[in-house]
Design a protein around this nucleic acid. Structure first.
Lengths: 207, 207
DNA sequence: TTAGGGCGATACGCATCCGTTCCATCCTTG
DNA sequence: CAAGGATGGAACGGATGCGTATCGCCCTAA
């Protein structure tokens, strides 16, 4: 059943619409909708049509901003991912470590974060351009934050140099991620303390 | 355009077909095709039509065996997942640990294993039935294997009891997984040795 | 004040997949 | 040797998504 000119003219009144400049409201709606849909269905099964619908926005508004799923995901991911970089300096290695673990834990306690992160890792293993983009722009941030902790500890004289930042940094992040995402077990303060103690013990052992 | 009797009779000769019993060849083809397609597209975007096509098999042959994607994935996953459980008993804790890490590393060196595992974790975070099934039937296996290592060490007198098996077990698996799947960095023998040393150090510290 | 362009809405043609239902063929089991 | 069920293949109606296009409306920047 085709619609013709008269159908349009007879249609019910439209609600107010946009202007000659892209509206931040629309971009924000699309961003939120993207992450919700991504968490629910995963990148591979992500429908931009559903994103637009959830945002209460026409598809055209989406395609006017990003030409493809990949472009939208990467651009939005970086725009929010680079904002949440914060550093803790509590004055001691143990407390810095714990603060870092607590920060990661609280992020991973949000279902949507767990879902998107897990799916991102899955998609990275099949989508090389995405993997390179994430590794070169987002993971660097987290790595530097962890590195900073050990550098401050060395500056304070708590550690000697020659530490394998990368391994130690992964140790905490990976184990906590595994616990919260993969096994789904609880991560109370005792657990976090044990994990921190293990990392500290390895630092003492290898120095 | 409906096909009628004469169309069928005029069709080109069929290649030889089956028998009155389900053929293991067909099941094996479908299994292999399932894992390839799963690795390529992920569970959410997995098409059973593509699985049948890749297996060189009619869709009917697939649906005759499994009623749904979930049923097929779970049944096939368990049928292969429970086979690869092997244990190492080298006589020392350090060597047992290394053997376990090496075994995991060699599995994760297969692209298809990394892809399916990562996607499985992602899917588990959105698909509760799948998560429960995997956690209750597959992860238990790996956990028991790790637990066995520490129990043997205690029996040999290398360790006192009171160890947190779960945490120590996750420590190795999670960190290695993270390295191979998430960051994509190299995992040479030096890396594996360092990782094992850290785990050993933590055991000494907490005993 | 005016023109340009973003806006929601709707439809397009094409593609894919779902789960089901037919075939005629042909092999294995009993 | 006979029977019964599995086989590859093809099509079904319905659903959904892709990326594009065009509509009339209306806001904002110049």
């Amino acid at each position: 059943m085709k619609r013709n000119r008269s159908d349009v003219n007879n249609a019910k009144k439209r609600s107010p619409a946009g202007a000659a400049v892209m509206q931040p409201r629309v971009t924000e709606s699309l961003t939120r909708a993207l992450f919700v849909e991504w968490a629910r269905h995963g990148y591979a099964a992500l429908s931009l049509e559903a994103v637009a619908k959830r945002a209460g926005v026409g598809k055209a508004a989406l395609y006017r901003r990003w030409p493809s799923k990949f472009a939208m995901v990467v651009e939005r991911l970086e725009s929010v991912g680079l904002d949440i970089t914060e550093v803790a300096d509590t004055g001691s290695l143990r407390e810095d470590l714990l603060a870092n673990l607590r920060s990661l834990r609280s992020a991973l306690r949000h279902r949507i974060v767990r879902q998107i992160l897990a799916d991102l890792h899955a998609e990275m293993s099949r989508n090389s351009p995405l993997a390179e983009r994430v590794r070169s722009r987002l993971q660097i941030e987290r790595r530097n934050r962890g590195k900073g902790i050990y550098e401050r500890a060395i500056a304070r004289g708590e550690l000697v140099s020659g530490i394998d930042f990368e391994l130690l940094n992964d140790l905490g992040a990976a184990t906590l991620y595994w616990r919260q995402v993969v096994t789904g077990a609880k991560t109370d303060d005792n657990y976090l303390n044990s994990l921190a103690e293990i990392i500290l013990a390895s630092v003492c052992h290898t120095q």
